[in-house]
Amino acid sequence: LTYASQRSAINSRPSLSVDELKREWPFLFMKKFLMQHFTSLTGIELYERLRECIAGKGRRVLQFFKTQLLRWTKEVKTVLADIERLQGENMDSTIAVILLMMTFFKEKDDAIFLLADRFHPDIKKWMLCVEGKVVIQSVNPQDDFTSALAVFFASFYIFNLEYQAEAASTLEFIQRFLVRINPENTK
């Protein structure tokens, strides 16, 4: 019901900071309502689309890289070896594909991911940071990496943010290949 008012607050000039928006629209900063806002904006059920896409294409992307091993840089080979090693250990294939693509595009993983506690890298909780501030935290232990990726990707569209230059290729890959948003005349 408040979608139109939220859009007009986000698009207002001079623009509000994300912090100010959060004060005005606290519900928009809860995962459920943020994802609903993205669906109203784009017509896409983002979490479902990412899950389907990774289930379908993820294994084929890994195959694409594995079958042409000699072509890749040392860094890509290292990531592929790590993925191979972790394959039996319930590895999240969304993480595998994103890290592999970041390495392939020669982008550093810290252009998207910051480990909050580097001594406990296995903790599965995540937070989303915008303009240097934490704006959403996962509260449900069921929230997987794909839900973090969905919230992260949705925030660019919802808050009119530009992709950061350090991760621009990976983000455009996510947009076109995984989410399948291909604006016309930009082939």
Binding site: R60, F104, S169, E172, R176, F177
Partner: peptide, 19 residues
Amino acid sequence: LNSHVASFIKEFTNYDWLN
């Protein structure tokens, strides 16, 4: 469209189609 992304998608699509 970022040319790195475009060439990856093109190559992958060809590979995927052939395999």
